[in-house]
Amino acid sequence: MQIYRIPFKAMASTCEVVIADHDEHAMFAKAQEAIAEVRRIEVKYSRYRPDSIVSCINAQAGRDAVVCDEETLALFDYAQALYQASDGLFDITAGILRQAWNFKSSRVPAADELQVLCQRIGWAKVERTGDKLRLPLAGMEIDFGGFGKEYAADRAAAVLQAAGVTHGYINLGGDIRVLGPKPDEQPWIMGIQDPRQQDKIAASIPLTTGALATSGDYERYFEVGEERYCHILNPRTGMPVRHWRSISVLAPLTALAGSCTTIGMLKEKDALEYLQQTGLRFLAIDQQGKVHTQAAA
């Protein structure tokens, strides 16, 4: 079997489908199905597209409820579970904080600016009746950015599995779902980036199945003096998290791995207790560069 790599762009990320197959033509057809599934999810849920269901719901904030299909309702169920598991820190209504934070500049928003936005945050405020969802306050928004890419990786993997792929993986900007080992049954070696040296690997993880995701303060950030301000924002204060450089989690599904990394970053000093309770393997690097790990329970 030959290993084929198909790069593509999606969700503002560099992505790749890797498949081992006997037939290049068949492999390419399978890869294109998976890529099409990623793009379908991007079109359906991107807040950048005015015709997406997310934009539709946001446009009706403070006004009417919007009818949602089963897939979207299932994602809201997942958002609810994450909200509860994180004690309200993982909140898909917190995306409006980007109105105050622009990580291409080095401006720290004023406290009163953040306070105004925080008053419009709160998954508990969202009204859901049957298949309808309503944002009760004008200016409220939902945003699936916290797990949309990871969900797309899992859906693309499902498409590849249905097509009979047993050796390969999908990588959506570092959110990785492995379908099976290399053709010789050896694991794929996945590198975890050093959060302070872009060209250096902090750890190498062998994977034959499952998922790997990482959240960190190095993806989008700016520095003022000695303070680093990253894109992972606490919905209660509107301020960036500061306790961890990065957290990586291994899980059966990419959505689960990614959600756990983000919740860990948001929990700051309480992250290790939370991660240990998940029973999942993780690697966390604190602000002093110390590595904390846990093997599978």
Rank of each mutant, 00 (worst) to 15 (best):
S215Y: 04
S106P: 01
A65Q: 02
A158Q: 02
V67K: 09
D199P: 01
L253H: 11
E16K: 13
R220K: 13
G145H: 07
M140W: 11
I6D: 15
C260D: 03
V178P: 08
Q197E: 15
L97F: 15
E268F: 10
Y45M: 11
R228M: 13
D64S: 02
A74I: 01
P206Q: 03
E24F: 12
R236K: 09
E141Q: 14
I96S: 04
T278N: 08
N102M: 06
Y169D: 11
Y221N: 00
K44D: 12
A255R: 09
P7I: 11
R120F: 10
P235T: 01
P183H: 08
A284H: 09
N58R: 10
L179I: 04
Y218K: 05
T209A: 15
D23S: 14
A203F: 08
L117C: 07
R47E: 13
N171R: 07
G258S: 15
D217K: 07
G180N: 03
D69R: 08
C118S: 02
L250M: 10
G174W: 06
A296T: 12
T237C: 10
R5V: 07
Q84S: 05
S215N: 10
G210E: 11
G258P: 12
D91M: 04
D217M: 05
E185H: 13
D143G: 03
I201W: 03
Y48A: 10
R281L: 00
R39S: 12
W244A: 00
I170K: 10
P109A: 11
R245F: 10
G191Q: 13
L172E: 01
Q287E: 10
L97P: 08
E226R: 14
R49I: 01
A94I: 07
M140S: 08
H22V: 00
A296L: 12
T129G: 03
T293E: 04
L212A: 03
W101D: 00
V241L: 09
R242K: 15
V18G: 06
L82G: 00
Y229M: 09
L82K: 01
F76Q: 09
D23T: 12
P235H: 08
D270T: 03
S105F: 05
M1V: 06
G216R: 06
H292L: 09
R5P: 05
I35E: 10
T293K: 01
E219I: 01
R98W: 11
T208S: 05
S204T: 09
I263Q: 03
D51I: 00
Y48S: 13
F90A: 08
K200I: 08
E226L: 13
L280T: 03
G148M: 10
E141R: 10
A257W: 00
G174S: 07
A111S: 07
S52N: 11
S46P: 02
E219C: 01
R40N: 14
S106R: 13
V66E: 09
T278Q: 03
E42I: 02
H231R: 05
G264R: 04
I3Y: 02
P50S: 15
